[in-house]
């Protein structure tokens, strides 16, 4: 079982050592934040700072994209499986350099938000991060315990095959109606690191942003398209949404599709080439008119 106290202790010791030795300039972790209600990102820069680091069951925040703020510096990060998948994705996309990051891989069998399993944890493949430099096991020791995972994630492709277009539209519309277009999901997403998001560009009349249904749909569908083959299923987008919008299933469904048809999965292989940055001449024509398989679901 998880022993967060021992894990915190090990994390602090490790962080202090790395900082004292000068191996890294900062250790990225989480710090208690009563105002927000759960721990928020924090860079410990001196050995004295490490006392502020916390590790508990509310540490569900994906820290990967905070590394981008210090991309040219050497930084250590307290990372769970989802953070590590995201780091791998960012390395694949040339946003981070592996040699600049020390991964303190913290074993995790699922985080809690508002007393229930945090978004994304239901589909997490393993309690052990898939890449790490320093081990923090479930009991704070130097070995991973390989804990049992909830493994109750939705198979979106199966769901889609068993529903009608109408039912799928209803689900989408129900979530869209809740959205207030605050962009918190975009800000939290490891994949949404563009300096100028398409939603912030209002150069031409057709790019006007009014908070109406069509704009909200355009935002989420385009964001999903941009995340095709890049979403690491970390759940950050759902965790930060103030309106309880659950649209991660679209991203997950696309990931399933990309894995099935193009044999690519984000956050697995550091050497991989991004799915949309490559093609094969014999790629299946999965959506084309005239005799080809329609990707109907």
């Amino acid at each position: 079982m998880m022993d967060y106290n021992k894990q915190s202790q090990k994390l602090k010791e490790t962080a202090a050592k790395l900082l004292e030795e000068g191996t890294v300039e900062a250790v990225l972790g989480l710090k208690d934040n009563p105002e927000v209600g759960w721990p928020t990102p924090y860079f410990a820069r001196t050995a004295g700072d490490v006392e502020n680091l916390v590790w508990n069951e509310a540490c569900f925040t994906n820290l990967a994209n905070y590394l981008l703020d210090m991309r040219d510096k050497k930084v250590a990060i307290a990372a769970k499986g989802c953070d590590v998948r995201s780091i791998i994705n960012l390395i694949v996309e040339n946003q981070l350099k592996r040699e600049n990051i020390v991964i303190i891989g913290i074993e995790c069998s699922g985080m809690k938000q508002n007393d229930s399993l945090a978004a994304g944890c239901d589909a997490c493949p393993s309690s052990i991060p898939n890449m790490y430099d320093i081990v923090v096991g479930a009991d704070g020791s130097d070995t991973y315990k390989d804990l049992e995972m909830p493994n109750s994630g939705e198979n979106v492709t199966e769901w889609a095959k068993n529903t009608t277009v109408d039912e799928r539209f209803e689900r989408f519309k129900k979530e869209i109606d809740k959205c207030i277009l605050c962009y918190a999901c975009r800000q939290a997403c490891q994949g949404c690191y563009c300096k100028a998001c398409f939603m912030d560009r209002k150069a031409t009349p057709w790019e006007q942003v009014d908070p109406d249904t069509s704009t909200k749909m355009a935002f989420h569908l385009t964001r999903a398209m941009h995340l095709a083959g890049r979403c690491t299923d970390c759940g950050a987008c759902e965790k930060v949404c103030p309106s309880g919008v659950n649209l991660k299933y679209l991203f997950k469904g696309l990931s399933e599709f990309v894995e099935e048809f193009y044999d690519f999965k984000a956050g697995v292989d550091m050497e991989a080439k991004p799915f949309a940055n490559q093609y094969k001449q014999d790629d299946q024509q999965v959506a084309f008119l005239g005799g080809d398989t329609i990707v109907g679901v």
């Binding site: 277009v165 799928r168 989408f172 749909m217 048809f261 093609y279 001449q281 084309f288």
Partner: peptide, 29 residues
Amino acid sequence: NYYARRRFSALKRLLSLAGFHPDRVQFTW
């Protein structure tokens, strides 16, 4: 068009998941 083919295939799946009838979007050469 090779890159486009991948992109369009994914887009068509996405739209279908979101409840847009697959026949409304057609790709061809």
